[in-house]
Design a protein around this nucleic acid. Structure first.
Lengths: 273, 273
DNA sequence: ATTGACTCTCCGGTTACCGGAGGGTGGAGG
DNA sequence: CCTCCACCCTCCGGTAACCGGAGAGTCAAT
């Protein structure tokens, strides 16, 4: 009953190019019903149109072919829904991200960025409750939310008033994934607590820049501080620290947020004449 | 004043990977201030951090590097704004498109599509006012709006009540760009009008499927009709026609829209016993 | 002088195809 | 039956924007 058609015809039915259909055949995503053994001509069935259109739709959503395959090969409709929903969530996230980037771009193109002033400080070694994890750049938002939620709860339990912070390994920035340690300073004799470890952070000199306001141009402050350090100081080994002086957990208004970025340096540079 | 740093350091300042920086150097988008002639080591200036971050932001918006280059190399801020705005517009468009695709996907994954019934008809040759253009798939929406706006205005002027339509060359679907002719039938002795040509559409047999409702799953109706034709008819050469029986220009409610898709066939097939 | 962290270039691979060369097929017309 | 033309095949290379790794050179400190 279902007629067999050539690639060209199938292409017209599905609005997928012949090249694309060849490709899908090659990778085994959408194989024709039969292939003439002598001529190599592909024959598609008209019942495949629906599958082809489904694939086309998913591709329009920029879904990678690997996921598309997973989806079209899964007969279980619950799991299909699941995969799809996950993808949509990613797209929503991307969209939100886009909006952020756009606003920060606007600020960037209209010049007049205020100069960052940098503070030098010696920070003694201290002990803290810590949560250590290998985190991907993209996941850092949710991770922080979870982790500082937990740390905050423990802090409240023990009546700790210290400012929380985190250290970020270089890899985290350059490889898009690396070790992050969220910490909440405690007294040296503090008892262990559930779900967190005790970490000892080394002391040293730091160049410190303060980022105020929403986080969408955080990297500019970061770059400005880094530039300053490169120009005026000798960097020291060790991860960069951030101190969340006023964080999203404290107040809702993004304008009030304050983060201190602490860049390890060898010593405090001599002021210029 | 501005210190020179190595790629690695610059990478840390900008959160661009070393590989990426190499790439940008190679294509001349962001060249280091100097390159050591003996060792080949790159030296970046801290003043380049801002440019690098700008590039990073634009890339996060998926802007192609060619455009990014255009933008960062343009000192004229008006033109920069222009390029940026154009890009944002494209993204908005893409977003809207995404929403459409998603809704139609939902419908697709929950089965139960009503069978399309196909009508056979002989359509005599007729004359029409026509607008012929080479159109890209992506541009078809705005193009139709413009073109049918114009045709509608001319039709109103002459008191023409006919149903407008369009023909689409095969290339339009398979190559993503091809000839489209929007037409509005007129009497054979109709006088020429400004901005449109007189076209004569050949008569013949057609298999006709009606698509009702919003256009987001238009291609499914299209595929269903094509499948039907492949199974029951012999196709005839010539472009596919669409007749806009009830179009967005007539009513705002998408549910009321009706489009007839006309697939050229050799003859009306004999009904099956 | 050696270590170890860093850097260089070059080559290949990735994803989802597109374009074209060079050659075989299939049905229609002469 | 032959020829034509549209269609089809495979194979090769290219695209964008990088990533990964090999093999080798470099820098600063110990």
């Amino acid at each position: 009953m279902a007629a067999l058609v050539t690639v060209g015809e199938f292409s017209r039915l599905t609005h997928l190019s012949v090249k694309t259909l060849h490709h899908y055949h090659e990778i085994g995503l959408l194989a024709p019903v039969s292939v003439d053994p002598s001529s190599g001509y592909r024959r598609y069935g008209t019942t495949q149109v629906d599958t082809a259109l489904l694939i086309r739709r998913l591709r329009e959503l920029r879904m990678p072919l690997a996921e598309v395959r997973e989806l079209v090969e899964t007969p279980d409709s619950a799991r299909r829904e699941e995969t799809l929903r996950a993808h949509l969530e990613r797209m929503e996230q991307e969209l939100a991200h886009t909006r952020d980037v756009v606003t920060s771009l606007r600020e960037m193109l209209t010049p007049g960025q205020p100069a960052l002033d940098v503070d030098y400080r010696f920070v003694p070694a201290f002990r803290a409750y810590g949560v250590r994890d290998q985190v991907e750049r993209e996941q850092i938002g949710p991770w922080c939310e979870r982790t500082f939620g937990r740390l905050g709860a423990i802090g409240a339990e023990y009546g700790i008033l210290a400012t929380p912070g985190a250290t970020y390994s270089d890899d985290f920035f350059t490889e898009d994934t690396g070790e992050v340690v969220a910490f909440l300073p405690v007294a040296p004799d503090q008892v262990p607590a559930d779900g967190v470890e005790i970490v000892d952070l080394p002391g040293g000199f730091f160049a410190i820049g303060v980022h105020s306001g929403p986080l969408n141009d955080f990297d500019r402050t970061y770059g400005a501080l880094g530039s300053h350090v490169a120009e005026h100081c000798q960097v020291a080994p060790g991860p960069i620290r951030e101190l969340y002086v006023v964080s999203p957990g404290d107040v809702d208004d993004p304008a009030a947020w304050r983060t201190e970025i602490c860049w390890p340096i060898q010593r405090i540079p001599a002021p210029k004449g």
